[in-house]
């Protein structure tokens, strides 16, 4: 085979290989492993986060959807919001997804909800007469309801105690000063009674 024919074969092979490789491979969207577990006080909120990243060689547009939960009788499903709800990841870039849970105050403590939230790689593909396959990552989101914590008075309590101690000390010192001992050994009050004798002239 001549050099020219060899070149044609090589080019054709390269083109064919390129076409085969280019046939439908979605991007490498990745995330940290492990479920998100929330313990949320009744009437309170809690926020957790995790990372997603682009492990491939092309940008990935993505959307984020909060989890859906099956309803529980006599309980109100907690409100779950995610941020961001969409974005674009560049190759080797990561992003943080924040998940916030708000627990209704009317729920009981000790209830558990379990659902899957998703980060999907956007696709513009269309396939009339067939199906389009869209890839993504799922994250299990588990929520527990708990009783609110007892109030923490913090530094205010110590200030009050300090004032009370100081008041007791000052009062004790003043009391001791008031009833200080004089000659005779016994402490005298501040005031004393004085007997006044008055001479009266009576006409005989």
């Amino acid at each position: 085979m001549g050099i020219k024919n060899k070149a044609i074969v090589t080019i054709s092979s390269v083109l064919l290989f390129t076409i085969l490789v280019a046939v439908s491979h979605s991007q490498n969207l990745g995330q940290g492993a492990g479920a998100l577990v929330f313990n949320v006080s009744l009437g309170g909120t809690q926020t957790l986060s995790y990372s997603i990243f682009d492990g491939g060689g092309a940008p990935i547009s993505y959307t984020v959807s909060p989890p859906q939960y099956n309803p529980i009788k006599n309980e109100t499903t907690p409100t779950v919001t995610v941020s961001p709800t969409s974005g674009v990841l560049q190759p080797s870039q990561s992003a943080t997804v924040y998940v916030t849970v708000r627990m209704p105050a009317t729920n009981k403590a000790g209830i558990r909800w379990d659902g899957i939230m998703q980060v999907l790689a956007a696709t513009n593909a269309s396939n009339p007469g067939g199906a389009v396959i869209q890839g993504g990552l799922g994250k299990e989101v588990i929520i527990y309801s708990k009783l609110p914590p007892a109030p923490n008075y913090g530094p205010l309590l110590y200030v009050i105690i300090g004032i009370a101690i100081a008041a007791c000390i000052v009062g004790g010192v003043l009391y001791a000063f008031k009833f200080r001992k004089g000659p005779g050994g016994k402490g005298k009050p501040k005031y004393k009674y004085v007997t006044v004798k008055k001479r009266v002239r009576v006409k005989a």
């Binding site: 439908s24 593909a125 067939g130 396959i133």
Partner: peptide, 8 residues
Amino acid sequence: EVSLSPTT
């Protein structure tokens, strides 16, 4: 990570 093939 997730990478799917094919996508249609």
